[in-house]
């Protein structure tokens, strides 16, 4: 599904955000991306969602190399990826329904089909009754769930989440992580960047650990390049 081959990212100014990163995330995988702030977690997610391009190496998604992919081919790739942000990135002048429907509108899904899918996604995250509300009227956890509904409504092959439980209490965090488990069970590859040690221990999922841009732990291919180090989380 996603293959990183010797991937490096250097930002202007000479700072290496990622160094020689190799891993492969398959369709059925759910992995947790961990590391301290500045370790390169967000850069890695940005590379997958083609917000940034690697300086060297190859990132292959469905046979397409993201380093060389043409600008016009980026949108179809992004439509295969559902992205969940810590700050939700919702449109505050649109209702919950419209925010979730946006993913389907950009994909050219008909209104009738969209309505059905949006309601199903909102039902899944427990917000069906709030479809006509504006995001500003929702709590942080509810806004995060709207973001999740928007990310999954187009049935993406890959789900990326950047600190999805960063501002949430333990109960809400569990609820949201359980949603990711459910999506993974139905065949969506999930990669979650998190600091949340409790969730790492609770979920018992493979871990990718970054330290200063280097992948020091990769549970996905069974190789442990370093011992798990919770001080780095």
């Amino acid at each position: 599904m996603i293959r990183f081959v010797n991937v490096g990212k250097r930002y202007p100014g000479g700072q290496d955000a990622l160094r020689k990163v190799d891993f492969e995330l398959s369709q059925s995988d759910m992995a947790l991306l961990i590391g301290v702030s500045g370790a390169g977690k967000s850069t890695l997610l940005k590379l997958i969602s083609v917000i940034e391009r690697p300086t060297y190496g190859q990132i292959i998604i469905d046979g397409r190399n993201l380093r060389t992919v043409k600008r016009r081919d980026i949108a179809p790739i992004r439509r295969q990826i559902g992205i969940i942000f810590q700050d939700h990135k919702l449109l505050h002048d649109r209702t919950v329904f419209d925010n979730v429907a946006l993913s389907l509108v950009v994909a050219g899904i008909s209104y009738r089909e969209s309505a059905k899918r949006v309601r199903a996604a909102l039902d899944k995250v427990g917000l069906l009754k709030k479809e006509n509300m504006m995001p500003i009227a929702l709590s942080g956890g509810e806004q995060q769930r709207v973001g999740i509904a928007r990310a999954v409504v187009n049935r993406p092959a890959i789900l990326l989440a950047d600190e999805p439980t960063g501002n949430l209490d333990a109960a809400l965090s569990d609820e949201i992580m359980d949603l990711f488990l459910e999506f993974n069970k139905v065949g969506t590859a999930v990669l979650i960047a998190t600091h949340d040690l409790r969730q790492i221990e609770r979920l018992q999922k493979p871990v990718l650990q970054l330290d200063h841009g280097k992948l020091i732990r990769n549970d996905l291919d069974g190789r442990l390049t370093a011992h798990p180090n919770h001080e780095l989380v």
């Binding site: 969602s49 917000i51 600008r71 016009r72 949108a75 179809p76 790739i77 992004r78 439509r79 295969q80 990826i81 992205i83 990135k89 449109l91 946006l102 993913s103 950009v106 994909a107 928007r150 990310a151 187009n154």
Partner: peptide
């Protein structure tokens, strides 16, 4: 601007 960024992030094409 913000809306455009979000639309592009969720796969909106340049034409869209």
């Amino acid at each position: 601007k913000e809306e455009i960024e979000i639309i592009k992030l969720i796969g909106g094409s340049d034409a869209f």
